Amino acid sequence: MRKGLSASAVLALLAFPAHGETLTLTLDRGIAATLEMPAGHGRFPAVLMFHGLGSSRDEVGIIFADTATALAMDGIASLRIDFRGFGKSDGDTGAFTLERQNEDAAIALQALAAMDKIDAERIGLMGFSFGAGAAIELAAAQPETIKSLVVWAPVGNYHDDMLDSLGQRAFDLAERDGIVGLDLGWRTMALKRDFFDGLNRHDLLAALRAYDAPFMVVNGSDDPYRKYTPALMQAAAGAEKRALVIEGGDHVFHVYTPSRSLAPEVIEATVERFRDTLGKTR
């Protein structure tokens, strides 16, 4: 049994083989990706998935991998990537910047939309934590392409979030030395001054004001990032927007504590949202 899926989910997979194939790809610039396809023929709606800072394409507790499986069972394809410098992608982690993250996001979208079995008219985006910012900015940059946006525990202000998370000392060290080593709690990494210098150049609320398609934000009730939800909801330009609170959930929905994990609830709500806003296979 694959870790992360419940016994009932595995039985469902066996009883209803609606999941097609899982392909490991390498996109432009050495970006590692996983394409998850439903079974059958036709052109599928698809979801592009962006992980958080310091993470990788399957995400914590393999919650992205499990979401991709659930989407495929519902007739929706997905592509999840490792941003350069993370997971299996090429690149130096220390050279990570918001500009490079956004470039990787655009490369992934172009690759997904060009695939033969993907309906380029029905593409959605989702992002987790820091990766939610990449999803928001890509949706704002290409609103005609992105038909639905779902963000989990999203950052709402890059600069303020990094200042709260890392403290002023990290900013000062990056300014003085050009690079700073960080302990994120689940991994260590180094970031260069270019990363810190770019934080104020990206306004996520302004980006959301340029996006008027369906938008949904999901937070645990105990997630400190929930503080950003009111501003995000106010900024979202579309009429079809929703804020979902997962009661008892923390920033990662307790995926590290299987007995308390709220991942199934988050996944179910996300799949339902994309089903409603993107539809199924044509």
Rank of each mutant, 00 (worst) to 15 (best):
A9D: 07
A9H: 11
V10Y: 09
V10F: 04
L11T: 11
L11K: 14
A12N: 14
A12R: 13
A12P: 00
A12G: 15
L13P: 00
L14N: 05
L14E: 10
L14A: 10
A15Y: 14
A15P: 02
A15N: 15
F16Q: 14
F16T: 14
F16A: 15
F16R: 14
P17W: 11
P17R: 15
A18M: 13
H19L: 13
H19K: 12
H19T: 08
H19P: 00
G20L: 06
E21G: 08
E21P: 00
E21V: 06
T22C: 05
L23Q: 11
L23Y: 02
L23I: 05
L23S: 07
T24S: 13
T24R: 13
T24E: 12
T26F: 03
L27A: 04
L27E: 05
L27P: 05
L27C: 10
D28C: 01
D28V: 01
D28L: 01
R29F: 13
R29I: 08
R29N: 15
G30I: 04
G30R: 01
G30H: 05
G30E: 08
I31V: 13
I31R: 04
I31S: 07
A32S: 15
A32G: 11
A32T: 05
A33R: 03
T34A: 08
T34S: 12
T34I: 12
E36W: 04
E36S: 14
E36N: 14
E36K: 07
M37H: 06
M37S: 14
M37E: 13
P38W: 01
P38E: 09
P38F: 08
P38G: 06
A39Q: 05
G40K: 03
G40Q: 02
G40N: 04
H41S: 15
H41R: 15
H41G: 15
G42P: 07
G42N: 11
R43Y: 12
R43S: 10
R43A: 12
F44Y: 14
F44I: 03
F44V: 05
F44L: 07
A46Q: 04
A46M: 05
V47T: 11
L48D: 08
L48C: 02
M49E: 06
F50G: 08
F50V: 10
H51C: 00
H51Q: 02
G52F: 11
L53C: 07
G54N: 01
G54W: 01
G54R: 01
G54Y: 02
S55I: 09
S55V: 06
S55A: 10
R57Q: 12
